[in-house]
């Protein structure tokens, strides 16, 4: 069976010489939800930008559902990999919610009724159907984040990549987003510092530190390994104990 995401020996240095990745190997199967953890500066964003070829030119390879990330495949790769960026204002650049969600599929050549169907399907998945004609800045931050998720769901990606999905959300919005994400039948890679969120949503976690994967396993086990956590500057919030969370 082909992996949904297969990263082999990926190394990358920025043009200014700063090396961010030193040989990353990661294999994600269809339907998995994986948390990508790691301290600031570990190379998480660099890794994410390799998944759809925004960054390239280093060593190693990335494959998405059997297709290698390289220039000839960019259009198809960008359909297969849906990245939700951290700031929804960066993601939502069209005049209305509808147009923004239509942007991706339209770039893939979807038109007419099929395009409208994609838009309403994506809006329904994130519970934002009634906001279709609104300009993005009329929405609350939590609503904008949900629309940002919809913009990539409309492309029917193989893998959903979320960069800090819970950041800046109030607790209710944070929980609502969790409910939505849990309900999606899709492979997911979630970059986050929000460890309880990772434990809640992702059965598997990997730790990226110093440009390499230093741990890969069951999220709960990783979080209970105090030495591993400490070595990688990962800390659970005050009073939070993974042992007390129902499996």
């Amino acid at each position: 069976m082909t992996s949904t995401l297969k990263i082999s020996g990926l190394a990358y240095a920025y043009p200014d010489g700063y090396q961010a990745l030193f040989g990353v190997d990661l294999d994600i199967q269809r339907g998995e939800r994986v948390a990508l953890l790691g301290p600031n500066g570990a190379g998480k964003t660099t890794l994410v930008l390799h998944l759809n070829g925004i960054l390239a030119g280093g060593v190693g390879s990335v494959e998405v559902a059997g297709l290698t990330v390289e220039k000839e495949n960019f259009q198809e790769i960008r359909r297969r990999v849906g990245i939700v960026f951290q700031d929804p204002d960066d993601q939502l650049f069209m005049p209305t919610v509808h147009d923004d969600i239509a942007f991706g599929p339209a770039n893939m050549g979807v038109t007419g009724d099929e395009l409208e169907a994609r838009v309403s399907e994506a809006l329904d998945l994130v519970g934002m159907a009634e906001f279709s004609d609104r300009p993005p800045h009329h929405l609350s931050f939590g609503q904008r984040r949900r629309v940002a998720v919809a913009t990539v769901l409309a492309m029917r990606p193989e893998i959903l990549v979320l960069d800090e999905p819970s950041s800046n959300l109030d607790p209710a919005s944070r929980r609502e987003l969790a409910d939505i994400l849990r309900g999606l039948d899709i492979t997911m890679l979630m970059v986050t510092h929000d460890l309880p969120y990772a434990l809640e949503l992702c059965p598997r976690a990997v730790i990226l530190s110093g440009g390499v994967i230093v741990a890969d396993g069951v999220t709960r086990d990783i979080m209970m390994d105090d030495v591993l956590m400490k070595e990688n500057r990962l800390e659970l919030p005050y009073g939070f104990d993974p042992r007390n969370v129902p499996a």
Partner: peptide, 24 residues
């Protein structure tokens, strides 16, 4: 810098230099 991030987000959704015609 925001402009650069927006551009990245656009590329990630298959932008090729033309905005698609969305309203028939």
């Amino acid at each position: 810098e925001r402009g650069e991030r927006v551009h990245l987000a656009m590329l990630s959704r298959g932008y090729t230099g033309r905005l698609p015609e969305l309203t028939p």
